[in-house]
Design a protein around this nucleic acid. Structure first.
Length: 413
RNA sequence: GUGGAUGUAGCUCAGCUGGUAGAGCAUCCGGUUGUGGUCCGGAAUGUCGCGGGUUCGAGCCCCGUCAUUCACCCCA
């Protein structure tokens, strides 16, 4: 009896030909950060459950209902990472990276896990690229970090997105705002579910999508108006730097993010062509996270960009090159298999992508194979070509051919 | 976790008020000699998601179940 195995519910998988897009997008998302000196880090996909409970925040939905948590054979509580920052902070502290020159600038990419009900752009295993700059609370870093994300999206060719930023201020600013916000809620007569959400994180209600709540919240006191002098100056500098860098943004004083650790500068990239799950990236500054996790009292800032959603966005905008992952050359040997594979080996070590026709198909079938492969050029290699040392290099798109010395193929491609 | 939609060949789908399964694309072979994309001919391919029920008879009706998908919640 055959059993039909299926991938677990809600995971995103990338198989050819779409996997070529995945590789390209992930690489492009990392590229700007690499060029700014962020160094790569590879971390475990699971951590001590308490790390996330403490790092992400006990009150968040992520911790209360979306984590893949299990007990390992030693009786330890383990959780599949639902986000990247907490694990990075743990590793930075554990390896003493914050004992050297500051800021520590790291880059990472990988799979993350949340046990949510899947829908478009939301998966139970999804991919993110992230960076963190830890150790200095300099507005110039904030601006650079945001610029790096913006560059990443631009490199891929995205246009139809916007950047929203705000400042959540420092602890003093937030405390002042919170007091007034809670007072405001008392006047609202909230239903039970909403009230308990407000209790966990008062800012959450700014994110409510119900029209009556949006209406009610339009009169709520906004955190941005409660920034103390220091926070205000910091945010103004960030904005001035962004303006100077030509990064376009909108200030959204009601921007709310899902993690409790954010303070100060906070931002989100939203793509307009996606469905309900429209955030393609986001991040912010965190003042207390590191000390909370047992490290020094250092501020940091970082972001996570969603690879899956960026792919959806890029596909929606039609900016994916059609020939992604296709070969440069397709060689069809006719009784010259040995010579063909030697030529292929040489071209490959020179960095060319070369395929060979395998099997006993006739020339016609092999040509079809070459066509389907999407290779840019094709050559037929028979006894005469081997003897003469030159081949007819055919450009598949146009059908044109030209005679090329085999030894000169590298340059011709 | 809640709600809606959908599950028929590898893919996209059709299948009339229940009568024993079809198209297009893709795949493979051919249209005679060493050149693909178009065209023509041919071939292969399905426990109609799974389990139960109603019926002489179910892809079509009923119940259950699983999965996919979109939205809510939340987030990348």
């Amino acid at each position: 009896m055959a059993i039909n195995f299926q991938a677990p519910k809600g995971v995103s998988e990338y198989v050819p030909p779409r996997s070529a897009i995945f590789e390209m997008v992930r690489e492009q998302l990392c590229a700007p950060a690499k060029s700014a000196g962020y160094q790569y880090m590879e971390l475990p996909v699971f951590e001590d459950t308490a790390l996330f409970a403490r790092g992400v925040g006990e009150s968040t939905d992520i911790v209360t209902k979306e984590m893949y948590t299990f007990e390992d054979r030693g009786g330890r509580s383990i959780t599949l990472r639902p986000e990247g920052t907490a694990g990075v902070m743990r590793a930075v502290i554990e390896h003493g990276l914050d004992r050297g020159q500051l800021p520590v600038k790291v880059l990472y990419s990988g799979a993350y896990f949340r046990a949510e009900r899947p829908q478009k752009g939301r998966y139970r295993q999804f991919y993110q690229v992230g960076i963190e700059a830890i150790g200095l609370n300099d507005p110039l870093i904030d601006a650079e970090v945001i610029w790096l994300a913006d560059q990443a999206f631009k490199n891929i060719g995205l246009k139809n997105y916007r950047l929203e930023i705000t400042s959540l201020g420092d602890a003093e600013s937030r405390a002042a705002h919170r007091k007034d916000l809670l007072k405001f809620y008392e006047t609202l007569n909230l239903d039970e579910a909403t009230a308990s959400r407000a209790k966990l994180n008062p800012l959450r209600l700014f994110d409510d999508k119900r029209p009556e709540m949006i209406e009610a919240m339009s009169k709520a006191p906004v955190l941005l108006d409660y920034l103390n002098e220091e926070s205000k100056v910091h945010f103004e500098k960030v904005r001035a730097y962004l303006d100077a860098l030509g990064v376009k943004y909108e200030i959204n004083p009601k921007l709310v993010r899902g993690f409790d650790y954010y303070t100060g500068t906070t931002f989100e990239f939203i793509h307009m062509g996606l469905g309900a799950q429209s955030a393609i990236g986001g991040g912010g500054r965190y003042d207390k996270l590191m000390s909370e996790l047992g490290g020094q009292d250092l501020s940091g800032i970082g972001w996570g960009l969603g690879v899956d959603r960026t792919i959806l966005a890029a596909e929606e905008e039609g900016v994916i090159p059609a020939d992604l992952g296709n070969a440069d050359l397709f060689i069809i040997p006719l009784g010259t298999q040995l010579e063909a594979i030697k030529i292929a080996a040489e071209l490959r070590s020179a960095g060319k992508v070369v395929e060979i026709a395998f099997g006993e198909r006739g020339l016609k079938g092999a040509m079809k194979g070459a066509d389907k492969s999407g290779a840019k050029y094709v050559v037929v290699l028979g006894e005469t070509e081997v003897a003469s040392g030159s081949v007819e290099l055919k450009t598949m798109s146009s059908g044109d051919t030209k005679s090329v010395r085999i030894s000169d193929l590298v340059n011709a491609l």
